[in-house]
Design a protein around this nucleic acid. Structure first.
Lengths: 140, 140
DNA sequence: GAGCCTATCGCGAATGGTCGCAATAGCCTT
DNA sequence: AAGGCTATTGCGACCATTCGCGATAGGCTC
């Protein structure tokens, strides 16, 4: 199924703005904010408004074409959905971000599935805590 | 150490506003939003501004007297720090919130401590996913 | 290709939260 | 009890995001 087909199959329309937002997310190397996406789209389509970017990100998210993650308590970060999944550790003291292999999350996911019949998305929010270095400093 | 002493020991001052914010959080039965706290404080001190409430919640958080949790992607919820810790499961389809026993989180916390020397706060953000009921509906 | 239905757009206002600034007021010293 | 240092306050502006609205434009049918 092509992009146009899968968009229309959900009762949505394939607008130029929607294509440009998807394109900007797919081109981005890392997790990117809505504002960064808006700036990149505006290079080709200056009239796009912020709410259009947010609404399209949400639509593309529901279509399974992009995803978002909450790394800190401030801005949401977006990325393409077809990459290998991974979790994030974020230190609340120094702000350091570490990616972790999904295997680490899988054990817990299994437990939530078994004990609560709940299918968790453990990559949705970063795990906050205190990193190795900041923990050593505090305990000394 | 009394409240006044522990506040001052951190180089902070014990203002009336700060006491009223702490009092409002301690009286609240459940997780409560900053706006709800503001409204309760205004009953006794009408002139308090929203930023003062936010700043005091942050200060009391750093002092270890209150904590906050992110249940959904919208508002932050505050509660007293001296209660038994617990995690939250939130369904992204129907919004249902379930509390889970800390034991479920402990296994994963141990793994992050061992493999990454990272001390996680797994109660800080709710775990989002799909609950039992919504999972059954989707697969049928 | 024209017409119609309605998803989507751009805009401006609203929401939840943070920040910079001048005025106020805790708390320490005397 | 008075003075001084500076943490804190209230205010207004700003940031990230959502929402309601009238105007625009996809995409189906003919």
């Amino acid at each position: 199924m092509t992009l146009a087909e899968s968009v229309r199959a959900s009762g949505r329309r394939l607008t130029l703005q929607r294509q440009l937002v998807l394109d900007a997310v797919q081109r981005a190397r890392h997790h990117v904010t809505a504002d960064e996406i808006a700036r990149r789209v505006r290079a080709k389509f200056p009239a796009i408004g912020p709410s259009t970017v947010y609404r399209n990100l949400q639509a593309l998210d529901e279509l399974g074409l992009v995803t978002h993650t909450h790394l800190d308590d401030r801005v949401t970060r977006w990325h393409r959905a077809d990459r290998h999944p991974h979790g994030h550790l974020v230190c609340r003291v120094c702000g350091e971000e570490t990616e972790i292999r999904p295997a680490v999350l899988d054990a817990m996911a299994k437990r939530l599935r078994d004990e609560h019949r709940f299918e968790p998305d453990l990559a949705h929010s970063a795990i906050v805590g205190v990193c190795r270095r900041c923990r050593d400093v505090r305990s000394s």
